[in-house]
Design a protein around this nucleic acid. Structure first.
Lengths: 356, 356
DNA sequence: CTGAAAGCGCTTACAG
DNA sequence: CTGAAAGCGCTTACAG
């Protein structure tokens, strides 16, 4: 390939590219020292440079379309302006609004966001965190943390600002933003109880993640408080937050001798699986069984029937996480903080009075 | 706040943090020069260092848990190992699988991905590209490009490797990966014609994006080829790929004197809007009107009725985009390439024979 | 208010 | 095969 031929000096020949102007170019154009340019361009230092000099510098910057090399500055200052976001599964429909909230707030503060998909193998998490640290990220947002996750200790040892989203670490050593899982489940259970259901099932999320145990606890407490008999409070645990696991768990619930008349899922994906299971058993929702989801992920209002679910403020969760992280970067010694967002019940058509 | 008190030297006091080891630490521990460590750790240069020395170095690296500072290396080599991804709307359900494909392939090659949400204001795009370039990204993946988008010329001027995803630039000056829009529409139209529909509407995407015009052209050509009379080929254009725009356009179609018996939407979000419009008019799908979507976004199989749609290989699109970009980075002088992926019709329950 | 110097942590010609 | 030096583009004490 002729385009790829090497030149005598051993480098790949390529079309001449005007390399980006540097601070030196700006300086020589203005007849000042590069450090003066640097000062003029730094909000914290610009008060040190004469107004007319600063003006000339700004003009040269504009003329040359100079943009500071963030990487070089970062090497010097030790700050990269990069934040790493670790997601358990980018394809999860709950992720985009959270990410959007994160990048919105972070972008506003001049930070860029590196997104990493951990994938199903959670053990890679630590390695990925290390890789991010090697890139010099100034902070981390983790959407992946399990209860008693070793990555927590790892981050603390690395002394890097971290905030957890939609997850909590058992030791509560890191800042976190989450929805109020207890309230969410209470809303769901009270709605169902109000409709007349006296026998309610729950499909719990995995026990190693905080939402799994917190929502389960919230469900059980609310059901008891609503006066359900212990025998009429049934829980099946899903191995993961997936539609298929939801289906399997729902089948287990439906096949019990005295199946519940309503099921509360720990999240909407699980609820989707309940719909699958119902169809499989020839059961109708809400005529035979009421279903409540959790999260209000996009388009569940389009399902058949439209899903009654607990809406959580995902974008806001992202915003708050970014805010917390920014605070921690600004003052690493500040207290860890937890932000708890209020969920809201969205009643649609998947819930109704029980038959009997 | 006592934790935030300043010390005499004017710097914020913070707990002692063992700073990351550098190449110097490794070198001095091994009694060699830093450059030797660098060589030992570089796949391209390691053949230059003696086996036993290399071994000692590797041991020291492991003992110190040394990780090269990617930023510093980047400053020297001019490569950051960072790729920027510009998305029109992170919350679009079509985005996650594409992003996932991109990060998967890029991550495998040692690159990290910076995700930027352009948001509704497309004019920011250029500025965001500049910001990414200032960060030294080695390449760009653009999911946002409009036909005749000035950002294309901008990227070419900046001589930065770019690949377009699911979009095409009018001048075709950049590499791109897209689905075969013409085939997709043909699949949809032939399916409907085969069912007996002789009057078919299309809700086209915005005319400033390639999929908008390509799919529309594909629709019109296929409809004509299927023998539909010109009067029975109806098109309404949506101002954006949103559910609401889909609803509005569908209403316009339904309110025509001779409304079609089937509608093909340029994407699934638009199809969701058709469902809304149908409900509003008291019409049933597929009894009164058949609907075909495009993209097969997550969970449209759960809609009521489950949506017949054209499935496009989104994750693969992301993989291929990353591959193309990697190729272009490796050889910037190589030809621009276009990858066209084959779509597939997924027949579900939103299509049926027409009533009459 | 400004210049000159040092240095962030690497990599890579240049010698030997 | 290895060391010493230079330099990537910045920022920031240090002088003046």
């Amino acid at each position: 390939m002729v385009h790829n031929s090497k030149t005598g000096n051993g480098r790949v020949a390529r079309p001449y590219v005007p390399s980006r102007p540097t601070i030196k170019d700006v300086a020589s154009r203005c007849g000042v020292h590069p450090s003066t340019v640097s000062r003029a361009l730094s909000p914290a230092m610009s008060h040190l440079v004469a107004a007319n000099v600063a003006k000339r510098i700004r003009a040269a910057v504009a003329a040359l379309r100079y943009q500071p090399n963030v990487t070089a500055a970062g090497l010097r200052t030790g700050r990269s302006g990069l934040i790493g976001v670790l997601a358990p599964d980018i394809s999860d429909p709950g992720f985009p609004p959270i990410l959007s909230g994160i990048t919105e707030t972070l972008g506003g503060a001049g930070y860029a966001t590196i997104v990493v998909d951990v994938g199903p193998d959670r053990s890679r998490q630590r390695q990925l965190v290390d890789r991010l640290i090697a890139r010099g990220v100034d902070g981390l947002v983790l959407l992946t943390v399990a209860l008693n996750d070793p990555v927590v200790g790892h981050c603390i040892a690395a002394a890097i600002p971290v905030v957890l989203v939609n997850r909590t670490d058992a030791a509560r050593k890191l800042s976190a933003v989450a929805t109020d899982d207890e309230v969410g489940m209470r809303l769901a259970v009270e709605h169902l109880a109000g409709l007349g259901h006296v026998s309610i099932g729950h499909i719990a999320g995995p026990p190693h993640v905080s939402t799994g145990v917190l929502r389960r606890a919230g469900f059980e407490a609310s059901a008891a408080r609503a006066g359900l008999k212990p025998n009429n409070i049934m829980v099946e645990t899903a191995g993961a937050y997936t539609r298929e696991e939801g289906r399997l768990a729902a089948l287990r619930l439906l096949d019990r001798k005295r199946a519940p008349t309503a099921i509360v899922a720990a999240n909407d994906l699980l609820a989707l699986g309940i719909y699958d299971a119902l169809r499989e058993r020839g059961l109708h929702c809400p005529a035979d069984i009421s279903v409540v989801g959790h999260n209000d992920m996009p388009y569940v209002d389009m399902l058949s029937p439209p899903l009654t679910t607990v809406r959580i403020a995902q974008r806001q969760m992202g915003n708050q996480a970014a805010r917390l992280l920014l605070d921690e970067i600004a003052d690493p010694a500040a207290h860890r903080e937890r932000v708890v967002l209020e969920p809201k019940l969205i009643v649609r058509a998947s819930t109704a009075r029980p038959k009997r």
